[in-house]
Design a protein around this nucleic acid. Sequence first.
DNA 1: CGTTGTCGAGAGCACTGCTCTCGCTTGCCT
DNA 2: AGGCAAGCGAGAGCAGTGCTCTCGACAACG
Lengths: 236, 236
Amino acid sequence: MNASRTARDRARAELTREITEEARRQVASEGAQRLSLRAVARELGMVSSALYRYFPSRDDLLTQLIIDAYDGLGEAVEHGDDGIPAADPRGRWTAKCAAARTWAIAHRHEYALIYGTPVPGYQAPEATVGHASRVPVALLGVVKDALDAGLLAEPPARRHALDPELAAQGELAASLVAIDLPPAAAVRAVIAWSQLSGMIGFELFGTFAGSFDPADAFFSEAVARMADLVGLPDGG
Amino acid sequence: MNASRTARDRARAELTREITEEARRQVASEGAQRLSLRAVARELGMVSSALYRYFPSRDDLLTQLIIDAYDGLGEAVEHGDDGIPAADPRGRWTAKCAAARTWAIAHRHEYALIYGTPVPGYQAPEATVGHASRVPVALLGVVKDALDAGLLAEPPARRHALDPELAAQGELAASLVAIDLPPAAAVRAVIAWSQLSGMIGFELFGTFAGSFDPADAFFSEAVARMADLVGLPDGG
DNA sequence: CGTTGTCGAGAGCACTGCTCTCGCTTGCCT
DNA sequence: AGGCAAGCGAGAGCAGTGCTCTCGACAACG
């Protein structure tokens, strides 16, 4: 028996899909700000009020798009290193970062939806956190694999150890995503992740305009330096 | 003779100021998305159409707020290291980064205005770039001072030199802000700047919720690691 | 002193998210 | 098989938005 049995259920699922697709199209081409329920309804040949049978509000429709965007980026990053040997963690890291950038450039408005300014008054429902964590999980996974394979460089000895509160948070963060990693390594990976996000944001939102404009070279350099920071071995 | 002579001119300047102030108040409390010309006019006891005598469109009012935000953050960062001896470039760097974060937290919506998702269809007028560059200029200035004082560590010898295109862009970027810095140093500083921006964004927009939630310790660690990357000497 | 340009008010246009009511259809239960 | 409740789309309507245009009043300049 099919998941959706009755004709009504099937129609509902179909229409829900069509609505999100048209909405995604609008967001992709015009940005989330310009997403209009009425325009979506118009495009689908229905009246705007009918749309509320499927999404109780504009924010709920946006939430669906946000989840989809998290999944799209997450999947791109998860598979960004396909075909790269496990023995080359730096290569995997680099490929995943490049995949994130490529996806972000190809879906700039959807990327802005998840890593840009949150819609005011809107706070991410619980439902999104699992999808949101796919990218950091994928990045931390590379570090974890490198550690397990004995390929993770020890951070250079520092005068001071990690701040105790930070160590606790690092451990908590790693445990939240079910990746067993020493806090120092987790913290460094998160530093790199935030750098990645900042850099992509700069490129996408025009901060680099006029300087590192085709940002390819800058991106490569930054990813390499972050790989250094994380402790991934410089292969070759 | 005063800059604004006639009563009309003075009244105009005064009202322009009042409008931007009320608009800033709205943005600060509700976010740029919720800035409403009609609400501003209402609050000022005038009718909405009258507002168009002062700002030709909502975007122009937003542009003014964006410039003000750039200046506010810029000034905070420029003076964030006041009182810290020039002989301590790492201390100055750390203080400036902390000042940026403090300002961002205190003015989250204004920060989002400049480093968050740009308003769709809106592109920063030429007039903004000077204001926008104050933060990177301030950060690069610390690096430049360290270099001049012979306090900037040489980047560890790398197998490959900087990509030629990247070196050219780095040189161009440094020259754009009139700071004479070797490309490699400039690039590293910009990497650190983008990390700073990404990290502040994560904290502000809730990406860290549930892990590095009071982000103070994480922030300190990240700033320190970026200071390492830039080559600022670990004092003490 | 008169002309010109600026100003605020008001009406109005096209659009938005959202609500409510009204019939029609579908599907489940008896 | 029949009936009732739930789901559905259409339409009208509300309160709000950015923005335009016109009109009468006032200030500034020649």
